[in-house]
């Protein structure tokens, strides 16, 4: 989008003003994520840059908050809980969501609109409402304050992402490939695992990553239905920010930013791969 050669001075001004504005929006988007990284190495328990930090004095920086984080039993237990819940609920979401997406992509399915609406409803209903409802229902069923309850809840919240991504992958799926496999003598099961699964795998995995992120980041439902024993990392952060905010939170935040960079790279890689497979070039 270069500036056309016939542009007048007013248009030139607008062109640069527009670019500067966009640059400022990008700064607005990314600064909050970057600012916490140096702050997490602050030796003082402040949320601000000390004079020593600005002068790049090595004594003003320390790994103090990281040591506190890795030395804390509470945080380590929280990491363990987060992993248990996230892995179980992501696995369940991927299996249930993929099966449902396979059914939804068949033209013979009756009440398709209604079923789709119900299946993605956990994504539309505000979390605070889901949390309140789950609190009532799960307590009456006796599964609140347990790993099972939290896993079930996070699975319900994660499946819509798998359903949507796998359905999208299947919309470009060529069923003739399965028919060809069948005509060459493959059994339906064999054709499913050899033809369908590899082709929809990118959709399944990126949906699964969305579900994983939902579970790892989810705090509203967790604070309503999980007990102290199931305390996850977001719950611990929530408590930490509310009670007494210490830079340990920033150390955790920095680690979480690194994790999101990793997840983002994976999802982007998968997206480009799936576009390449489907013949839509990313470049």
């Amino acid at each position: 989008m270069a500036l056309p050669s016939y542009a007048g001075p007013l248009e030139t001004f607008w062109y640069y003003a527009f670019r500067v504005f966009c640059g400022m929006v990008f700064i607005f988007l990314i600064t909050p994520l970057l600012i916490i990284i140096p702050l997490s190495f602050n030796i003082e328990p402040y949320f601000s840059f000390t004079e020593g930090m600005l002068a790049f004095d090595p004594d003003a920086y320390s790994l103090r908050w990281y040591e506190e984080f890795f030395g804390s039993e509470r945080w380590m237990a929280a990491i363990k809980n987060t992993f248990i819940v996230a892995i179980c609920s992501t696995f369940l979401s991927m299996v249930l969501g993929t099966l449902a997406a396979l059914g939804l992509s068949r033209s013979e399915l009756p009440f398709k609109g209604l079923i789709m609406g119900l299946l993605i409803s956990p994504m539309i209903v505000p979390l605070i409402i889901s949390a309140a409802g789950m609190f009532f229902f799960y307590s009456s069923m006796g599964v609140s304050q347990s790993y099972l309850g939290l896993i079930l809840a996070h699975t319900a919240l994660g499946t819509p992402f798998v359903v949507i991504t796998v359905t999208a992958t299947l919309s470009g799926f060529d069923y003739n490939l399965v028919r060809a496999a069948n005509s060459l003598g493959a059994s339906p099961t064999y054709a499913f695992f050899k033809i369908t699964v590899p082709l929809i795998m990118t959709g399944v995995i990126s949906g699964g990553l969305f579900a994983l992120m939902t579970s790892v980041d989810e705090v509203v439902v967790a604070i309503f239905i999980a007990g102290a024993e199931q305390r996850t990392v977001p719950m611990q952060m929530w408590a930490g920010i509310r009670e007494q905010i210490s830079p340990t939170i920033l150390a955790v935040a920095t680690l979480l930013v690194c994790m999101s960079i990793l997840l983002l790279s994976t999802v982007e890689y998968l997206r480009r791969r799936s576009e390449a497979i489907r013949g839509i070039s990313a470049h």
């Binding site: 990314i30 994520l33 935040a253 999101s260």
Partner: peptide, 22 residues
């Protein structure tokens, strides 16, 4: 686009606490 997607993939609590710091 990375500048848009990175915040999108970052924990809500991380972003909220960095706004407190800011």
């Amino acid at each position: 686009m990375i500048l848009v997607l990175l915040p999108f993939w970052t924990s809500l609590l991380v972003r909220t606490s960095s706004w407190i710091a800011l």
